[in-house]
Design a protein around this nucleic acid. Structure first.
Lengths: 223, 223
DNA sequence: GTCTATATGGGGATAGAC
DNA sequence: GTCTATCCCCATATAGAC
């Protein structure tokens, strides 16, 4: 951990508190107290709370998405004819967010919850920031998935990518529910177990047969 | 819509604003202004903002979960030997939250986003309320899914139920991402389309083969 | 039941000394 | 760069008249 300056300490403290309580509920006073910095330091270094939020997110999102693209490129290079397995594409997408907790500089398990929370946070400004950060990743993975699932119509692929991201995001954001569902039998902090179970679950979902006919899937009628 | 009293108007206004902006970010002033009620009316009728939040949620969660159990019971009664298809169980779980928008008194599309948001909201108190409301539903559907997937170990079923709920919650909370992924090609307000695609996606995920050996699934290695 | 007026506290941001 | 002191706004909640 090279930099030990005030700015750096504020970023770390803000990251932890945002993940724990959410953006709205975290005051600058709480952040500067935790960072052992002065209240005015936030505005000096970042200009405003909004800009601090953006700085906290960008510091982690950028390297995470760069690693996703690197992994995707690697598994495309390894595969014959540039057609990697669906499972390896999914792993390239899923592993980076989960693995951030292993690195000293990755923010521990904290940042992972932060990402999850960000997606459902109300503000439009925050969401636009995220759109920009993820557009390239979604386009590259969309192409890869499309090649791995050539029989799947574009529109259906979009829906299933939506479900894929939804599962990832919500799993990152709230592992407490796993404890609640399992009555404590599954360990909600075991991110390795999570990613290794997500891959086959999502692969099967992405490969699922299309709903027959117009849309009436068999067995979905209830009345 | 029988009751037109102040209490009722406050509930509706709060519901809409909570869904749009989140709980923390919505002030009592905004609520009472929108409800054309007096600021003090909230504390008179509900006692505090926390109690208002609980009232807003309970009004919708209870009937939703009652319908889920009713649908589950119905499809178990129809099935031979009490073993309904996986798809019909999933539909019983998924349809009620999506269908609330069709009813005049269901809160429109608004309440659906509210549920999604609630799950990722920071507060512990809110979460405990939800735990209580959903415990019975999760137990009943857990048993039904276990019977439909007898070869799936308990622990793996818990993980997959976790993923199932995650997909539903996040899909309810943020349909904007679908627009972003698809470049506008999919309609994010089309909840019928969503539920009809969720059923086969989740059914396939729940039926997915188990990761081989300890946990090393084929194709998940990247290095 | 409904209103006005107000108590009380916390929020983000800033001015200006050091 | 860092601190103190403060401005100003908005939040929830309540007291008390009607």
């Amino acid at each position: 951990m090279p930099p030990r300056g005030t700015k750096h300490r504020i970023l770390n403290a803000a990251e932890a508190l945002f993940a724990e309580r959410g953006f709205e509920a975290t005051s600058l006073r709480a952040i500067t107290t935790s960072a052992e910095a002065n209240l005015a330091a936030v505005n000096y270094h970042f200009g405003s709370k909004q800009e601090l939020v953006k700085a906290v997110l960008e510091r982690r999102v950028r390297p995470m998405n760069e690693e996703r693209l690197r992994l995707l490129h690697a598994c495309e290079a390894e595969a014959d004819g540039g057609k990697p397995t669906l499972e390896s594409i999914l792993a390239a997408f899923l592993k980076p967010p989960f693995e951030m907790r292993h690195r000293q500089n990755g923010g521990g398990g904290v940042i992972v919850r932060l990402f999850g929370r960000t997606y459902t946070e109300p503000g439009d400004e925050l969401w636009k920031l995220f759109v920009g950060q993820f557009r390239e990743v979604l386009e590259r993975f969309g192409s890869a998935l499309s090649r791995a699932l050539p029989e799947l119509p574009r529109r259906e692929l979009f829906w299933r990518m939506h479900f894929m991201v939804a599962t990832l995001i919500q799993t990152l954001a709230d592992m407490r529910r796993l404890e609640m569902i399992s009555g404590g039998e599954c360990d909600p902090t075991d991110f390795d177990a999570a990613v290794e179970r997500l891959v086959p679950f999502l692969a099967a979902g992405l490969r699922a047969p299309l709903p027959g006919g117009a849309i009436s899937g068999k067995g979905t009628e209830l009345t």
